[in-house]
Computed example of a mutant assay.
Amino acid sequence: MFETTPLKIVAVAAGLSSPSSTRLLADRLAGAARERLAAGQDRRVEVEVVELRDLAVDIANHLVTGFPSAGLRKALDAVTGADGLIAVTPVFTASYSGLFKSFFDLVDNTALTGKPVVIAATGGTPRHSLVLEHAMRPLFAYLRAVVLPTSVYAASEDWGSQGDEYTEGLPSRIRRAGGELASAVTGRTVSGATRVPTLDDGEDAVVPFAQQLAGLRTG
């Protein structure tokens, strides 16, 4: 029997296009965390994705007026009330996007205290992967969140790749990060839930990026 109060995972996606690789990565990370949580305990698991592109005008208005719209307030409440948070941004000019930063500027600097967070980013080239360490990790450290060890960067070439003998592929990194978030949310030690699956564990099949992105289209 499930407990009455579900565990809630919230993913914030700051992609501007539709469909978006940033939203796709947010969905994959949330799915990995939900799968691990569902397998490890009896509480229901709810996942909510906050698309910042839909709130861009409301975010700008709030920065100017100090008053959030109902939709923006709902998004902020979801983020601050989550048991675990996933934050994903596209890389703009070697850092997180302005929309991403503007949204988290509206989060009270104590509201994420102790909350486990997976940080992730998307970009066109692997050269921008350090944005996770020089920009995103310090941002959430300032907000007093617990930033989990595994961060996930997805360059265009990472989609549909399984990695090689020296480098983990994107699916493995997603599962590792999702496992760490699930462990942190339920109070288990992160090290006990982060073994990287091998091909023998049923590694994801290689799916071309265009096909993955097409799956996000509606209607």
Rank of each mutant, 00 (worst) to 15 (best):
F2E: 12
F2T: 12
F2R: 13
E3I: 10
T4D: 14
T5H: 10
T5D: 12
L7D: 10
I9E: 00
A11V: 02
V12D: 02
A14S: 12
S17A: 14
S20V: 06
T22R: 04
R23H: 03
A26T: 01
A32Q: 07
A33N: 03
R34H: 09
R36V: 14
G40I: 03
G40P: 01
G40L: 01
R43N: 08
R43K: 12
E46N: 06
V47W: 06
V47H: 01
V49K: 03
V50K: 03
E51F: 06
L52N: 02
L52C: 12
D54G: 11
D54E: 14
A56P: 08
D58C: 00
D58Y: 04
L63Y: 09
V64K: 09
G66M: 07
F67A: 14
A70S: 12
L72Q: 00
L72N: 09
R73T: 14
R73P: 02
K74H: 11
A75E: 01
L76F: 04
L76D: 01
D77Q: 12
V79P: 03
G81T: 08
G81V: 00
A82Q: 08
A82Y: 05
D83C: 05
D83I: 10
D83S: 08
D83M: 02
I86N: 05
V88R: 01
V91R: 02
T93W: 08
S97R: 03
L99S: 05
K101W: 04
S102D: 06
S102R: 01
F103R: 03
F104Q: 02
L106T: 14
L106Q: 15
D108E: 15
D108R: 11
T110H: 13
T113G: 05
K115L: 15
A120M: 12
A121M: 07
G124P: 09
T125P: 02
H128R: 02
S129G: 09
S129R: 10
L130P: 04
V131P: 04
V131K: 04
E133R: 07
E133K: 03
H134L: 01
M136V: 07
M136P: 01
L139E: 00
L139H: 07
Y142R: 07
R144Y: 05
A145T: 00
S151M: 10
S156A: 13
E157T: 14
D158R: 12
S161Q: 10
G163Q: 06
Y166T: 13
Y166S: 14
Y166M: 13
E168L: 13
I174P: 00
I174A: 07
R176C: 12
R176S: 03
A177E: 00
G178P: 08
G178W: 00
G179Q: 07
G179R: 00
G179F: 07
E180I: 09
L181K: 06
A184N: 01
V185E: 01
V185L: 14
V185A: 07
T186S: 11
T186L: 11
G187M: 11
G187D: 10
T189N: 11
V190N: 03
S191A: 15
G192E: 15
A193N: 14
A193R: 10
T194I: 09
T194L: 13
V196D: 01
T198R: 11
T198L: 04
E203L: 12
D204G: 10
D204R: 13
V206M: 06
V207P: 00
V207W: 12
V207G: 08
F209E: 14
A210T: 15
A210N: 05
A210H: 12
Q211D: 14
Q211T: 13
L213P: 07
G215N: 08
